[in-house]
Amino acid sequence: MLDRALTFKLYPNAREVERLTDWIRLHCELYNAALEERIDAYRKHGKSISYYDQQNVLPEIKAARHEFVELGSHALQQTLRKLDLSFQAFFRRVKAGQTLGFPRFKASKRFSGFCYPDPAGWKLMQHGGRGATLRVGSGKDAMSIRARGQHRFGDGAKPNDLTITRRNGEWFASVTLRVPEDACPRARTGAAYRGVDFGLNNWAMFDDGEAIANPRFMRNEMSRIADLQRQQARKKRGSIRYRRLGARVAKVHERIGNLRREFLHKETTRMVKACAVLATEELRIQNMSRSAKGTQQKPGRLVKQKAGLNREILSAGSSMAHNMLAYKAVEAGTRLHVANTRQLKPSQRYAACWEIVPKTLAQRTHVCAHAGTQRTATRTQRRSC
């Protein structure tokens, strides 16, 4: 069995929106109360409270606060587990000497949503096509919310967990499906052996010279975002107009993300369908997009230029493309080879003779004297080989 994620858009009516908002508020209240309990216990008594300590108190909370009963025990446990994961990440960063980021209290308006970690307490029913109904809760108080979405895995796919989120005033349900392996394969139409290099001038460059242009969704909307942000800066912070302009900026970013995701899905699907073997290099996007501002003692250089480059790197979505290729290649029966960049040094190595010549970023070509001949390759071709 394989795990596959699917997102449905929800269309709740006014009464259902009010109930979902109340549920998010209660989950946020539980999260903040559990965080406060951990902080107070350590400050006053030097004692650390574990997830299991807080989970065992849930029956007493539901007995005293009856509104928590309809949320479901497993969903409440998952909210406490979410806080526990935040503390685990905090202590891991402490040991690694990284930026700490202590868990913070959350406002209910910024609390993203809640999760059912197993099939209990909800049910997803598809009606053919893209129509669906999500039933949440139990008994006569259960809600049946209209949804839109579809998956390609047939009746053998079994829902495993559900996450309900609220983004920009809209509601979404992310469902993880447990899918049989025989329901996942993709039809592969080609048997090519190709190398591909992900970049910025061209989103992808293949070893035969074929290029896929970078759509630059973020750059195309920068002027619109800047105009909205200038308008927002002139409004009183916290006013209705300030919030409306903030929502419009968020809508533009959401649209950019949707366009990017659609583009990546189409191109990665085309790659794995056409190739029996697909080779690329490992990319460490987190390192590549690191800020150049430095420290107060050692300030960085060309900080604004590096910030613009980082924006373009993240907008290209190369890391997301690698993740998509990883699971789509398995489904299509395509062999995906990801070369170790640090070991292979593709920017310094010429594929024809395997010679390594150190270069600066300004050097875009490699001239190789091999067997008495001169060979020249562009930087992009070298990285693709």
Rank of each mutant, 00 (worst) to 15 (best):
W203G: 00
A204K: 05
A204H: 03
A204I: 00
M205V: 06
F206M: 15
D207W: 00
D208K: 03
D208C: 13
D208Y: 10
D208M: 13
G209T: 00
G209C: 11
G209F: 09
G209N: 13
E210A: 12
E210Y: 07
E210P: 02
I212M: 07
A213F: 03
A213Q: 12
A213H: 08
N214Y: 08
N214F: 07
N214S: 11
P215C: 03
R216H: 13
F217Q: 11
R219N: 09
R219W: 04
R219I: 00
E221C: 02
M222C: 07
M222F: 09
M222Q: 15
R224N: 12
R224Y: 01
I225E: 08
I225V: 15
I225N: 08
I225Q: 09
I225P: 05
A226S: 13
A226C: 06
A226P: 00
D227L: 09
Q229S: 11
Q229Y: 04
Q229A: 11
R230L: 08
Q231I: 01
Q231P: 02
Q232M: 13
A233M: 04
R234T: 00
R234C: 09
R234Y: 04
K235H: 05
K235L: 06
K236S: 11
R237G: 02
G238D: 09
G238M: 02
G238C: 07
S239R: 10
S239V: 04
I240R: 15
I240W: 09
I240C: 09
I240Y: 11
I240G: 05
R241A: 13
Y242T: 04
R243C: 06
R243V: 00
R244L: 12
R244Q: 15
L245N: 07
L245R: 07
L245G: 08
L245I: 15
A247G: 08
A247M: 06
A247L: 07
R248T: 05
V249K: 11
A250E: 11
A250T: 14
A250F: 08
K251F: 03
K251W: 04
H253Y: 15
H253R: 04
E254H: 08
E254L: 06
R255Q: 12
R255F: 03
I256L: 07
G257Q: 10
G257D: 13
N258A: 13
N258L: 07
L259Y: 09
R260D: 11
R260E: 10
R260L: 09
R261L: 11
R261W: 05
F263G: 04
F263N: 09
F263M: 06
F263A: 13
F263D: 08
L264Q: 14
L264K: 12
L264Y: 09
H265M: 12
H265L: 03
H265V: 01
H265F: 12
K266L: 10
K266W: 06
K266N: 12
E267P: 01
E267Y: 05
T268P: 12
T268D: 02
T268K: 10
T268F: 08
T269D: 12
R270A: 12
R270F: 01
M271L: 15
M271V: 04
M271T: 04
M271F: 11
M271R: 02
M271Y: 06
V272A: 01
K273H: 06
K273N: 06
K273W: 02
A274N: 13
A276F: 02
A276S: 13
A276I: 07
V277A: 04
L278F: 08
A279V: 01
T280W: 08
T280L: 15
